[in-house]
Simulated scan of single mutants.
Amino acid sequence: MVRVLAVDDEAPALGELLYLLRADPRVRSAEGAGDATEALRRIGRALEPGPGGGEGPGALDVVFLDIHMPGLGGLDLARVLGRFARPPLIVFVTAHEGFAVQAFDLEAVDYVLKPVRRERLAEAVRRVHDLVHATAPAPAPEQVPVELGGVTRFVPVDAIVYVEAHGDYARLHTDHGSHLVRIPLSVLEERWADRGFVRIHRSHLVALGRVDELRLDGGATSVRVGDAELAVSRRHARHLRDLLMRRTS
């Protein structure tokens, strides 16, 4: 079971969220705070050691956090919590779709849109519960929030085959479709270098483990990833060949 703090400056919204959380059998306790200052005060008390120096009785697993609040907003509060030695997990609950990228940068577990639906909130609680009770400590699988028709979905980075540049945007290609996100390709190249993504062209980033073929044709180099054939620039060709050869050695 998980211990929850919900933070929202609108009392009716906070009351409804707490009602739904307390009705979930995976939630051990759910308390509320009306602003970031009160939230930090409650979290500080929760971090005080219990008898014998162990975990305090009010220790928290997750904060369900509104974004727009007077004073310190939800994104700012999440940044503050991220500096803690053992920060709680974060789930954003907001009426605004446009902050999903910032939530992604802050490693939020989920991003739930208002009005909150019981089924959608239950999915967020499930994700938190699975992380809190994992048999071995492990980071949450990295996911990219994508928005389509008012719905925010989270695409696992491991499901992405290649990425295509679209100006300040990037199109993520998976085996089951593609998604446009407002993140420049250069940012993803740096962020995902240790996840096996390699720049092969000014317009493409590929998952090295998903490269099926390397083709040389009259001095031109290309790769096949899934159903796509992508050109490899001369600048990147040698480095890509070395990486592929190293993968098979």
Rank of each mutant, 00 (worst) to 15 (best):
R79M: 03
R83I: 01
A85I: 04
P87Q: 03
P88E: 09
L89A: 12
I90S: 14
I90Q: 13
I90M: 15
I90C: 12
F92N: 14
A95I: 07
A95F: 10
H96Y: 13
G98F: 02
V101N: 15
A103Y: 15
F104H: 09
D105K: 12
L106R: 09
L106M: 11
E107C: 05
V109G: 05
D110G: 11
Y111K: 04
Y111G: 11
Y111Q: 01
Y111M: 04
Y111V: 05
V112T: 14
L113E: 11
K114M: 07
V116G: 06
R117V: 11
R117C: 00
R118D: 10
E119C: 03
L121A: 10
L121S: 03
A124R: 00
R127M: 05
R127F: 10
R127E: 14
R127T: 06
H129D: 14
L131G: 01
L131M: 07
L131F: 02
H133K: 12
A134D: 15
P137N: 02
A138D: 00
P141L: 02
Q143P: 02
V144T: 07
P145A: 09
P145D: 07
V146F: 08
G150R: 08
T152E: 00
T152I: 15
R153S: 15
R153H: 12
F154I: 00
P156K: 15
V157D: 10
D158C: 06
D158I: 02
A159N: 11
V161W: 03
V161C: 09
Y162K: 06
Y162T: 04
V163D: 00
H166P: 04
G167T: 00
D168E: 07
D168W: 03
D168T: 05
A170L: 10
R171H: 04
R171T: 08
R171M: 09
L172N: 11
D175V: 04
D175L: 04
H176D: 15
H176F: 09
S178V: 01
L180T: 14
L180F: 06
V181E: 11
R182D: 12
R182M: 09
P184I: 00
L185K: 01
L185W: 00
S186I: 06
V187S: 00
L188Y: 05
E189F: 05
E189M: 06
R191K: 10
W192Q: 04
W192H: 01
W192E: 01
W192R: 01
W192I: 01
R195H: 02
G196L: 00
V198M: 14
R199K: 12
I200P: 15
I200Y: 07
I200R: 08
H201R: 07
H201V: 13
R202I: 06
R202G: 11
S203L: 08
L205N: 05
G209H: 13
R210Q: 14
V211I: 14
